[in-house]
Write a protein that binds this DNA or RNA. Sequence first.
DNA 1: TTGAAATTGATAAACTGTCTCAAAATTATA
DNA 2: TATAATTTTGAGACAGTTTATCAATTTCAA
Lengths: 144, 144
Amino acid sequence: MPHKHVKEMEALKEHLGKHQLKLTRQRELILNAFLRQEHITAEAMYHQLAKADPHLGLATIYRTLNLFCDAGLAQARHFGSQTKYDNVSHKGHHDHLICTGCEKIVEFENEEIERLQEEVAARNGFTIKNHRLELYGLCSSCRH
Amino acid sequence: MPHKHVKEMEALKEHLGKHQLKLTRQRELILNAFLRQEHITAEAMYHQLAKADPHLGLATIYRTLNLFCDAGLAQARHFGSQTKYDNVSHKGHHDHLICTGCEKIVEFENEEIERLQEEVAARNGFTIKNHRLELYGLCSSCRH
DNA sequence: TTGAAATTGATAAACTGTCTCAAAATTATA
DNA sequence: TATAATTTTGAGACAGTTTATCAATTTCAA
Ligand SMILES: [Mn+2]
Ligand SMILES: [Mn+2]
Ligand SMILES: [Zn+2]
Ligand SMILES: [Zn+2]
């Protein structure tokens, strides 16, 4: 039977090949777990994987998630006080709506906002390399 | 001679009064130092004030800056990896352009973006309480 | 002026993330 | 497949930042 996440696995292998890095059991394990979620903290993944491999070290989780960032599969995002790794392997740039009641995260894209950002930057002589837009509030469930 | 920052001092006193908090020498000292800058880290303020009062503790700086946040005079912002306290006493909400070359920070407001944010939130059933928009890039000086 | 309540300073502790290094795993080569 | 060079791992030490603790001090209402 075919494994899931074949495309992402290929992308990782390509990155590894280009940088003299090796494909390890841990990297495969963490990749598969990572691709199963949208946003996750290193700590949460650590606990999640403790069942599958109780000896997997937290440092390895951090190292591997950072590797995924380098490979373009993940992106570290600082939501409030915690750092979550965003699964960006199968989607482009996007921003976030975050419910402060239930922690739900909704992703969105808005070209008009992006365009206005460029406009603001240009007006101030800046060239934008990247940006962060987070909207914090209550989702419809939590408002009641 | 009249002291500076009278209005902000009044605002602080009002907050203190409402919460059974006391006005101390340290709080006055830190308020005046804080209002002299736009964005500053707790650590930077600690070193800055070491000259005026070598015994002022770092914990007091943190406590007091957080108090200013509660009082609506300051706002903690996480720029890149450091936390800076933003002086919002004499201006309303605003967002930031941050130069990754020289650390320069430019403030801006854009009603159109704010409006579009509300639109995005409404479309997803959210009510926004606050938001964060940061544009990272290079200023005109650093681009050369 | 007094005394209850809040604040302070010093430092311990918590927290998050990175570094170190010997042991283990991977991969190229023979 | 065996060998050996190189990379990776896991455990815990370590570092940076912020909060908690607590006895001593200060504030302020009565
Ligand atoms: Mn996302
Ligand atoms: Mn600002
Ligand atoms: Zn919610
Ligand atoms: Zn610059």
